[in-house]
Every structure is written in structure tokens, then in C-alpha cells.
Simulated assay, not measured.
Amino acid sequence: MTQNQIPEVIQGGDNVFKDLGFAPEEALNLKIRADLMLNIKRFIQSQGWTQKQAALFFGETQPRISDLINGDIERFSLDKLVMMLVRAGMDVRFEVNVKAA
């Protein structure tokens, strides 16, 4: 790119993982896990907890909470994230809709 060229801006979709080229199934799984992790992170922040305090509450290690806070999606399954949210007193629901043909 030369100095006078304007970079092209492309509008992304509703799933950044799909935009990055992940297969649709994997992109959806990653997005759901990322969304759940963000909810847990916000909960921890709303409590004003340190990572150590959050680890005690969730029955995890401090490094594991650090992974969550830093968005290390690969280290957390949907099951684990749902269990953590329920422990935090949150109602977790998944909605499934049939796509129009």
C-alpha cells in the first residue's frame, strides 16, 4: 500500500469467527463460548474480585481464571462455562431456530 492509498474497510458480519474464515459450525461454537466468557468476566468485575477470589468462588485455579479473563477460548468447554454461570446465579438459555430455506 502506498502512502496515498486509503485502506479498504469491509463491514463484518455478526460473528467475527466466521469473518475470520472458521467453518460455520466452529465459528458458532467459538462465538457462543466467547459470549459466555464475557458474561463471566463481567460478573467477576462487578464483584470487584481479584483473580484469586474468583478462583475460590468458582472452584478453579487462579491461572484458569486468568485464561478466562484473557479470552483463551480453547481452554473452556460450553459445559464448563455454563456451570460457572449457574454458580454465579445466572439463568442460561440457548435458543434454537430453524433457518428459512
Rank of each mutant, 00 (worst) to 15 (best):
K80I: 10
R42I: 08
G48F: 10
A54G: 09
A27D: 01
W49H: 07
V86K: 14
R33E: 02
V9G: 05
M83Q: 12
G48A: 10
E60K: 09
G89C: 05
R93H: 11
A100F: 10
Q51C: 04
M83D: 15
V92W: 00
D35H: 11
D35N: 15
R33S: 03
F94G: 10
Q47H: 07
A100I: 11
G71Q: 05
N4D: 14
F17G: 01
F43G: 01
D67P: 07
A55G: 04
Q51Y: 07
A34M: 06
R93S: 13
E25P: 03
R87W: 00
E8F: 10
P63R: 01
S77W: 03
Q47F: 02
E74S: 12
D91H: 11
Q53K: 14
I69G: 06
K41N: 10
V9Y: 07
I73L: 13
F58A: 03
A27Q: 01
E74P: 02
Q11C: 12
W49C: 05
F22Q: 03
F76Q: 05
A54M: 07
R75G: 07
S77G: 10
R64C: 08
Q53Y: 03
I40P: 00
V82I: 13
I65M: 04
T61D: 11
A55C: 05
N15Q: 09
Q47I: 04
M83S: 12
G71R: 03
L38A: 14
G21T: 00
S46Y: 05
Q5T: 14
V92T: 03
L85A: 08
T2R: 15
Q5F: 14
A23Q: 11
G71I: 02
K31N: 10
G89Q: 03
F58H: 01
V96F: 12
F58G: 01
R42K: 13
N39R: 13
S77E: 06
F76K: 07
G12D: 09
L56A: 15
D79P: 08
Q51M: 08
S46N: 12
E74T: 07
L36R: 02
A54I: 02
N97C: 10
I40G: 00
F22S: 02
R42N: 15
N4K: 14
F94E: 05
A88N: 02
K18R: 14
R33A: 08
I32Q: 10
I65Q: 00
D91N: 12
A54V: 01
V9R: 09
N15S: 04
E60L: 15
E26T: 07
Q45V: 13
N97K: 14
A88I: 02
M37F: 02
A27G: 06
Q11E: 15
N97S: 11
A100L: 12
E8Y: 09
K80T: 15
K18V: 06
G89T: 06
P7Y: 00
R64F: 09
A100E: 15
V92R: 04
G21F: 03
K41H: 13
N4T: 13
I69L: 11
R93C: 11
W49L: 06
D91W: 04
I40N: 01
E95S: 12
F43S: 01
A34T: 04
F76D: 02
